[in-house]
């Protein structure tokens, strides 16, 4: 039995009266790659944002890399060091260069010397194939390039788990592939990944498991081939019909 990277037990969350997450149970093994899909408003983003405490859950337990997420600030800091996140809108720091974006957290959180942080940053910028943009500012790059910088920035903290929150939804069609290529490369390197995405080709190629969510619940989960060819729930069938044309 392999160890768990993320465990969610009977997690519930409300926004005021609105029940966004209903009794979520999830066990992600180390090295596992999970794709989460579902209609908008189904709670996919909220669920993965609970994993690094950008959102607070109100009921149930979340354990990340053996650390329970409680109100304990120390635990939250520890979890955030282990978990990298990539956002839909990149959220790069516009006042810093690409290189500074990548070295900021290693220098101020991990207390790495500048040279070492820069070396790591250049390594990951090479991995996402934009080392030549290191001294530019985010505003000077295309959307696809910015998202690749965002991935490199997260990787510079050497995370054990990577969260992707619709990483290609804000991109022009021609730029989606360059970002997905980087994510595939990452998956093949053995990273534990949770991706909220509607890129079904990506799901088929790298995912161990696809999770379908609707109205705050996990409706169905299966390995990709079964999931796409033989969906069980009528809601999953309807959703797949709509997105696969």
């Amino acid at each position: 039995m392999t160890e768990s990277a993320v465990v969610m037990k009977s997690v519930n969350k409300w926004y005021g009266q609105f029940h966004v997450l209903r009794d979520i149970n999830l066990d992600v093994k180390k090295g596992e790659r999970i794709v989460i899909c579902g209609p908008s408003g189904s709670g996919k983003s909220t669920m993965i944002r609970c994993i690094n405490r950008l959102e607070e859950h109100q009921q149930g337990d979340i354990i990340v890399d053996g650390i329970p997420l409680t109100t304990n600030v120390k635990n939250i800091d520890d979890v955030r060091r282990e978990v990298g996140m990539v956002f839909q809108h990149f959220n790069l720091f516009p006042h810093l260069t690409v290189l500074e974006n990548c070295t900021l957290a290693p220098m101020w959180v991990r207390k790495e010397p500048k040279a070492q942080a820069e070396e790591t940053a250049m390594k990951f910028l090479k991995r996402v194939k934009i080392p030549e943009q290191a001294l530019k500012y985010p505003g000077q790059l295309s959307g696809g390039q910015q998202q690749r910088v965002a991935i490199a920035r997260a990787l510079c903290m050497n995370p054990k788990i990577m969260l992707f929150d619709e990483p290609t939804s804000a991109l022009d069609p021609e730029m989606i592939k360059e970002v997905l290529d980087v994510m595939v490369d990452l998956a093949q390197g053995g990273m534990t990944m949770l991706c909220v995405t509607h890129e079904m080709a990506f799901a088929r190629q790298v995912a161990n498991r696809v999770i379908f969510m609707d109205q705050g619940q996990i409706v169905e989960q299966n390995e990709p081939n079964e999931f796409f060819l033989n969906p069980q729930s009528p809601r999953t069938k309807l959703f797949l019909e709509q997105i696969l044309h």
Partner: peptide
Amino acid sequence: QSEASSALGL
């Protein structure tokens, strides 16, 4: 911006 900072552990 603050979310990205938090996610990086700042």
